[in-house]
Amino acid sequence: HYVEVNGKKIQATSAEEAEKIAKKFAKIYNATVLDLGNYYKVT
C-alpha cells in the first residue's frame, strides 16, 4: 500500500495507514483523495 502525492510515492504498512496519510496530505494541499484500489492518489 502506498500514497502518491505530487508524483512521489509514500509507502504505508496498511490500507488504513495509507488512507490516513492520503487524507492528511489532501487536507494540507486542499486536494482530493482518489482510492485506486491498491493505492491512494492525492490530486
Rank of each mutant, 00 (worst) to 15 (best):
F25K: 00
E4P: 00
V42L: 07
V3A: 04
V3L: 05
E17R: 06
V5N: 00
D35T: 07
V3K: 02
Y39V: 07
H1L: 07
Y29F: 13
N6A: 07
H1I: 11
K41Q: 12
F25Y: 13
L34K: 08
I21R: 00
K9M: 12
K20N: 10
I10T: 01
H1D: 02
I21T: 03
G7H: 06
S14C: 07
T32K: 09
F25M: 11
E16H: 10
H1N: 07
G7V: 00
G37N: 04
N30I: 04
A12K: 02
I28P: 01
D35Q: 15
T32E: 13
V33D: 02
G7T: 03
E16R: 11
T43E: 13
K20V: 09
K24L: 14
L36E: 06
E17S: 07
T13G: 14
Y39E: 03
A22L: 04
K41A: 08
N30D: 09
K41W: 07
G7W: 04
T32M: 13
E16G: 08
A22P: 00
Y39I: 08
T13H: 13
G7E: 03
V33F: 07
K27F: 11
E17Y: 05
L34W: 03
D35P: 07
T32C: 14
F25N: 03
L34P: 00
V33T: 03
T32W: 08
H1E: 02
V42P: 05
I21D: 00
V5S: 00
A22G: 03
A15E: 05
A31R: 02
Y40V: 06
E4S: 05
G37E: 08
Y40H: 07
N30V: 04
L36S: 04
Q11L: 13
E19Q: 12
A18M: 06
A26H: 04
I10Q: 01
F25C: 14
F25W: 12
G37Q: 06
I21H: 01
A12D: 01
E16I: 11
S14V: 01
I10Y: 11
T43V: 15
V33H: 02
A15L: 14
N6C: 15
A18H: 00
N6W: 15
K23N: 12
K23T: 08
A22K: 01
A15D: 05
A12R: 02
K23G: 07
Y39S: 06
F25D: 01
Y2D: 01
A26C: 05
V3P: 00
V42R: 00
S14M: 03
A22T: 02
Y2F: 10
